[in-house]
Nucleic acid binder design. Structure first.
Lengths: 216, 216
DNA sequence: CTTGAAATTGAATTGTCATTCAATTTAATA
DNA sequence: TATTAAATTGAATGACAATTCAATTTCAAG
């Protein structure tokens, strides 16, 4: 493998040279973390992909751990915040909650494709390196809010009594996050190259709306 | 960190000493791979957890790659095979397919808790190290079989016309695999410590059966 | 202009990892 | 019992990773 960019000269680069290396390092890092997992991605891999010297990472971020902290603050937290805000603003009818959540997730994921794999690996899988940093602050209020609203709707008789409101939250997240993360596998496998993000969202909404209805 | 077992003497151990190290290495390896990801797990971590010398791994399995191959052959393939067989034997009615699949998955996962995280990370996530080894041989026939049976049922009018049979397969897998892998997160978060594997399965079956029904 | 701060690099350091190898001990076979 | 095969280890090797540091270059402020 030959180096694709010529080795840069030492010293501070000229202004027009190639702007905002810091942002590019963060982009490359979150991409690699999402693709290969945080623990499996070395600093060297990041520097190679971003075409910078290893020492630059340490100049900007200190060490590995603080690089991860920075990504959480500057990239991941805002992305989750947007989804949480959309759901919080939704009306109380279960159909509306479902529709708003699915669409918000669909849009968020389109804007940030690194999100589903990263969440699967680093939050949900046991031993995930982001679990502690994200669950308490970000996931808990959204999930509990959904649970409480489903429970209230069920008490009013607008949700099938056989369903558990807590598990409904799990089902909802399963149906939105998982298909996106798994798309590279099922798309070719099920000959579903034509399925767009929107089609997926509408399928999910149709499925859930029907599932929630109480019988008769 | 002090060594928890005293360093073993060199040479072949006595028969009663501590049997079947090879099997124990495989157990430990699949557990660690499931918890931390394959790429993120070092041979040394495995040897430390299994209380054997690093060289023993190479004696039994050659190198890292062949250790993974061995795990696929001896542990993962049989586990998937059992689920595939159950589904293949199910009757053609969508309700039956769903019920058999969900229950088979639930039982398989109870017997092999390493399965969901490993599948999520190493098969479904982009860059997963098991994708190529598992998708073609194992996942494809099961997934396409399900799709075709759903499509036929839909043509006969027993499945809601708004649902896409291909995405139904995705939904089905999402609803079975994901909740198990994510359980360590949602259980405390949603105060669902009382939810058993069976309750989860029955919730999922109820949800899907209702969702499949054509309206009116 | 001069000077100091910012951005960037190559090289050095220290640790860990995968893999190999010879030595050692026990089991199985003849 | 003698001999060979199997199972296991400690130690050595070479690659690569994380981190530090001094040197270099450019920008910004005076």
């Amino acid at each position: 493998m030959t180096r694709s960019t010529p080795p840069r000269a030492r010293g501070r680069p000229g202004a027009a040279d190639d702007a905002d290396r810091r942002a590019r390092i963060l982009d490359v890092a979150i991409e690699l973390f999402s693709r290969h997992g945080i623990a499996a991605t070395s600093m060297s891999q990041i520097t190679r992909a971003a075409h910078v010297a290893p020492a630059l990472l340490h100049y900007y971020f200190g060490d590995r751990d603080r690089l991860v902290d920075t990504l959480v603050e500057e990239r991941i937290a805002p992305a989750i915040g947007a989804i949480g805000a959309a759901v919080a603003a939704a009306p109380d009818a279960p159909r509306d909650i479902v529709r708003v959540f699915v669409r918000a997730m669909s849009e968020g994921v389109t804007a940030h494709p690194w999100f589903p794999p990263l969440w699967l690996r680093e939050v949900l899988s046991e031993g995930g390196l982001l679990r502690d940093r994200l669950v308490g602050t970000f996931a808990t209020p959204v999930a509990r809010g959904l649970r409480d609203r489903f429970a209230r709707a069920q008490a009013e008789g607008v949700i099938d009594a056989r369903l558990d409101p807590r598990l409904l939250v799990v089902s909802l997240i399963s149906l939105t996050l998982f298909p996106h993360a798994a798309a590279p596998v099922w798309r070719p496998l099920l000959e579903a190259g034509d399925v767009t993000s929107t089609m997926l969202a509408e399928h999910t909404i149709a499925l859930l709306e029907r599932a929630l209805e109480p019988p008769r």
